[in-house]
């Protein structure tokens, strides 16, 4: 799909900060506010803008800590539907955060979020490994998140270190 300059510019703004008002966007791009809203709607309808996720660091909140695991899953693809049907059986579980089909030594990369190690392990042994066609799983627990979807979690590049007035 080929996008117009206005559409690309709107994406650039939203990718940086999706809470900018449509008014401010319109002023930045010399568009009317109405036109901005229509363009965003079109981008959403076409699934170019898929969603506006909020990145929450649950581990900072007492009682809300989570455990994240990345699981390499090997499967035997099924006749006719390949990997898609097995992937669906996995991604339908709400505790599954993401599922990707990968090239290389395993097939599906599954990210899972649970409250405890036990909870995650139980899901892997009771749910994931028992799906027909799943040959093996390798579970990696995430120890620390440094950067997520382009956002540095603990960086301090964001602080303004400039003086208030300079030539």
């Amino acid at each position: 799909m080929k996008l117009s300059n206005d559409e690309l510019n709107i994406l650039a703004i939203l990718e940086e900060n999706h809470r900018v008002s449509t008014e401010a966007m319109a002023m930045q791009l010399n568009m009317t506010e109405d036109n901005v809203q229509k363009t965003i709607k079109k981008l959403e309808d076409n699934k170019i803008i898929v969603s506006y996720p909020t990145l929450i660091d649950w581990n900072q909140i007492e009682g809300k800590e989570t455990v994240v695991a990345m699981i390499d899953v090997k499967v035997t693809p099924q006749r006719g539907v390949g990997f898609d049907e097995i992937a669906e059986r996995i991604y339908r579980y709400p505790e599954v955060n993401s599922v990707y089909l990968m090239s290389g030594t395993y097939d599906l990369s599954v990210t899972l979020e649970g409250k405890t190690l036990q909870e995650v392990s139980k899901f892997v042994s009771n749910k994931l490994s028992t799906i027909d066609n799943v040959i093996s799983t390798t579970t990696h627990f995430m120890l620390k998140r440094y950067k997520h979807d382009g956002v540095i979690i603990e960086g301090n590049d964001e602080d303004d270190k400039r003086m208030v007035v300079t030539p």
Binding site: N9, A12, I13, E16, A24, M27, Q28, L29, N30
Partner: peptide
Amino acid sequence: ESYWRRRNYMVQA
């Protein structure tokens, strides 16, 4: 590009 957008905003504002 980022400055260009902000310029447009500022001039109008």
